[in-house]
Each structure stands twice: as structure tokens, then as C-alpha cells.
Computed example of a mutant assay.
Amino acid sequence: MDLLINVGLPVSLAIIMLSLGIGLEAADFRRVISRRYPFAIGAVCQVVLLPVAAFATVKIFALPPAIAVGFMLLSFCPGGVTSNILSKLAKADVALSVSLTAVISLLSIVTVPILAAWSIDHFMAEDAPEVSISSLALAMFLITTLPVAIGVGLRHFAPGLANRIDAPLSKLATILFVLIVIAALAGNWQLFVDNLGIMGAGLISLNLALLLIGLGLARAAKLSWNEAKTISIETGIQNSTLGITLAALITGTESGFSPLALPSAVYGITMYAVAIPFITWYRNR
């Protein structure tokens, strides 16, 4: 278990972020300037709306402190490669999705440590583990920002190599992700069983609400249908592997997977059940 947490978890996330970087080009970052308005709508939804909706969900469902923190950690994690793939399947604006993922993922090195520290202090009070924002930011840089930068560099300087390793990396990351979700559930099995009903209902409700709110705001902002689909997906889809990794970084690994990782692990399963009907609708309209 310790090997999976200490090695498999950060390696899995780094591989996922490397795979994300390999799919990016400099144009994906420059596009933010030329498409400021739709990007701004998507960024506000991800950075502001998402945590606010998660906070409201936690309060409405009266979740236990550790589970509440886990919900908040999940809400701080951008969609990553998964949101890009789902945008493509939904025939949405993939270029906008990639640009949002690229920039928000890089910004997360600043936003996530600060918001995570606040959440732990707010919900866990005297039971809160000590969190070093600088240490968390450094860890975030090493396992998220640096792999993305390496991937972008490979795409630019060695496109042939990038194309060859992209698919195997994605497959490996998927296998590791499945193992991590299973281990996180197994390590907190009793807590999982005791809170499955309320936690599952909270996660599904939050996921549904975010997909619908993202779509509604985008349409209210007069974005095109393809742009609105992208905003919906980027708002409603989170990187559960990053959520599990954050929980491990915050609480340490001496006692196995932290209860803080449980919402992200469950979300890694429920997300697809919620997203598939939306993707089917988006694809056919």
C-alpha cells in the first residue's frame, strides 16, 4: 500500500499531466488572447463557481468534516485530459477546452494550495493536519506543472517521439488510476460504506448541477452552442487523480489512503455515469 501511495500515486498523476502536455502546443496558450471572452467565462466557472457549488453541496448534505474537505479538494482540480476527450466526443469546441485545461492546470499550482489549506482549517478545525502551502505548491509543481512543461517541450522539439509515446502513456495512466481508486476505496472501506448514500448523492448532485450551470451561464453569456458545451464539460468534470494525490500530500502516507481521498475516488466512478447522458445529448444535437 505504501508503495502504491508513495510511488504509484505521484507517478500516475505525473504521467497523466505529461500526456496532457504532449497534446498541447504554444498555440493553445496564445488562443487565450484571441478568445478572451469565452475563456474568461470558462475560467470563472472553474476557479470560482466550482468551489462555491461544492461548498454549498457540503453544507446542504451536512457531510462529515473529512468528507467535506475531500469534496472541496476535488472541486479545486481542473478537468485535465478527461475533459478534453469528453469535449471531443461531444463535438464541442475542443480548442477552447484544451486552452482552458492548459492555463487552469498551470494556475492550479497557486490556487490549489491556498484553497486546500483554507478548506482544511475551516472544516476540520482542531483536527486539521498541519498544511504547508509552500511545500504543497512545490509538490504540485513537481507532479503537475513540470510534467506539462516537459510534454509541451516534447511536442515542440520532438513531435515524432511525442506521437509515439502519447497512446502508451494514456493507457498506463488509466491502469494506474483504476488501481489507485480501488486502493483508496479499500483503505477506507468502512467509512465508504457508512457514507456511501449521502456521499454518492452529494457527488452526483454536484456533478449534475455543475454541468447544467456551466451550460446555462455559457448560453446566458451568448456563447455559441459548441462553446457552451465545452464550458459545461470543463465546469462539470474534475481530475479525480489530482484530488486523491492532494489528500495524500496533505495527510501523509503513514496510515494508508486518507479519508480525504474518498470523495475523489468515488467521483472517479460516478463521473462517467453522470457525464455519459450529457455527452450523448451534446453529440446528437
Rank of each mutant, 00 (worst) to 15 (best):
L9A: 08
P10K: 07
P10L: 03
V11S: 12
G21N: 11
A27R: 12
F29S: 04
R35F: 15
Y37V: 15
V47T: 08
L49W: 11
P51H: 04
A56L: 12
T57V: 05
I60E: 08
A62W: 10
A62V: 15
A66V: 13
A66W: 10
A68Y: 00
V69L: 01
M72V: 07
M72G: 07
F76T: 00
P78T: 04
G80H: 05
V81I: 13
V81A: 15
N84A: 03
A92K: 01
D93N: 04
A95F: 05
T111Y: 09
V112W: 06
P113S: 03
I114W: 11
L115S: 11
A116Y: 02
S119C: 00
M124Y: 00
A125N: 12
A128M: 01
F141W: 09
R155M: 12
H156C: 15
F157N: 12
L161G: 05
A162Q: 01
N163D: 13
K171I: 11
L172Q: 02
L176I: 09
L179H: 00
A183S: 00
N188Y: 07
W189N: 10
D194I: 05
G200N: 06
L203N: 02
N207P: 09
L210W: 04
L212N: 10
I213Q: 03
G214M: 01
G216A: 11
A221D: 06
K222T: 11
K222W: 13
L223T: 06
S224G: 12
S224T: 12
S224C: 07
W225M: 13
N226F: 12
I231Q: 05
A248G: 00
G252K: 04
S255K: 13
P259W: 01
L260P: 00
A261T: 06
P263G: 07
P263I: 01
M271P: 06
Y272A: 00
Y272K: 02
A273C: 09
F278L: 04
I279P: 01
